[in-house]
Structure formats: structure tokens, C-alpha cells
Simulated assay, not measured.
Amino acid sequence: MNSTPAASTVITVKPNSGFMLSHPAHMIAQGFGSGLSKIMPGTFGTLFGWLSFSVLTLRWPEVFSPLNWWIIIVAGFFVGVWACDKTGRDLGVADHGSMVWDEVIAIWLVMLFITPADLWTQFYAFLIFRFFDMVKPPPINYFDRRFKGGMGVMFDDIVAAFFTLLVFAIWRTI
């Protein structure tokens, strides 16, 4: 007799505030709750990232300097690999939609490169990043398929951020 449960009996955990608060990795991966939105959690995670970058930079510019943002983003990427890997395993879905730390880190990277920028420029950066993150045109879709686990969750959004910045670089030279 086969002792493994049938695919239909595998229970996946529902992402909610209780799950998020049950482990620090879940809180990070789910963007401190921004990923728990019932609609478009990736967009809400990106909004949280944009808002947190703006508020922290404006409120404490001596702490959230460009150099310190670099350190935060690099460290946040590696923490995100761990947090998204753990959270994905605990949810039973490797790249669950409620995991939005990848969007947070990627939009921080975009904002770091385009700042100082007015609100409209930041909004366009938000829209362009969301386009690349949702549509995943080549080669973003290649990295999305190629890398698995926490690295897979995090890396394709860094590539989407790169393409967002490429659009801005072209836009600014026109």
C-alpha cells in the first residue's frame, strides 16, 4: 500500500495574518502584511516598497542614505531568499502570490537609481516595474522558470527592476 497522500489530499496553508505572524520569515516574505491583499498582492507589495522607501528616505535621510540603501537592498535580497524559501515551503507553494518581499526589494532598487525624482517619475517607475513583473517578457520569464525556491522568487524581480531602469536610461537620453 502506498503511504504517500494523494495529490488531492495535500493540504496547503492559507496565507493570513495568523500564518504571517507565526514566523519572522513569513512576515518578511509577505511584506509585513502587504502581500495578504485579496486582490493584486504584488501590486500592494510594490506600493508598500515605494511608500516605505519614500517615507524612510524623507524622514531619516542621514540614516537612509544611498550607501545605506545599497547595504539594505543587498542584505534584504539575501534575507528574502531565505524568507521566501521558508514561506513557500510552509505554504506548500514555492512562489505563492502572497510573498511580495521580492517586489519590495526590487522597487527599492529602482527608487534608489531614479531618486531624486518627482512623484510622477516615481509613479511611472512603479507602473513600468509592475508591467515587467506581471508580464515577465523574455528574458525575465527565463529566470522565473530557471531558478527555483527563494532564489527564484527574488531573482526574476531583480531582472524586472533592471529592465525598468533600462527603460528609464533610454527615456532620459531621448
Rank of each mutant, 00 (worst) to 15 (best):
M134Y: 15
M134K: 13
V135H: 04
V135R: 04
V135F: 08
V135D: 00
V135K: 07
K136Q: 04
K136M: 04
K136N: 05
K136S: 03
K136P: 03
P137G: 08
P137V: 08
P137R: 14
P137T: 07
P137Y: 12
P137C: 09
P138A: 11
P139F: 07
P139K: 05
P139N: 13
I140K: 11
I140N: 12
I140L: 15
I140W: 10
I140Y: 15
N141C: 12
N141T: 13
N141H: 15
N141P: 13
N141A: 13
Y142T: 10
Y142L: 14
Y142A: 09
F143S: 06
F143D: 06
F143E: 07
F143C: 10
D144C: 10
D144F: 08
D144T: 08
R145K: 14
R145S: 09
R145Q: 10
R145D: 08
R145V: 03
R146I: 08
R146H: 15
R146P: 11
R146L: 12
F147P: 01
F147D: 02
K148Q: 14
K148F: 15
G149K: 07
G149S: 07
G149N: 08
G149I: 02
G149D: 02
G149R: 05
G149L: 05
G150M: 02
G150K: 04
G150W: 04
G150L: 00
G150R: 08
M151C: 07
G152K: 00
G152W: 02
G152I: 00
G152S: 01
G152H: 02
G152N: 00
V153Q: 02
M154E: 00
M154F: 03
M154Q: 06
M154V: 04
F155P: 09
F155R: 14
D156I: 02
D156K: 07
D156H: 05
D157L: 10
D157H: 09
D157N: 14
I158L: 11
I158N: 05
I158D: 03
I158G: 03
I158C: 12
V159A: 09
V159Y: 10
V159G: 06
A160S: 13
A160E: 06
A160Q: 09
A160D: 13
A160G: 10
A161C: 02
A161W: 03
A161F: 03
A161R: 01
A161D: 01
F162H: 01
F162C: 01
F162P: 00
F163H: 14
F163C: 07
F163D: 06
T164H: 00
T164C: 02
L165A: 05
L165Y: 09
L166W: 13
L166H: 05
L166A: 09
L166M: 11
L166P: 06
V167L: 09
V167K: 06
V167E: 02
V167M: 15
V167G: 03
F168I: 11
F168P: 11
A169Y: 15
A169M: 10
I170Y: 15
I170G: 13
I170M: 15
W171E: 01
W171G: 02
W171V: 04
W171I: 06
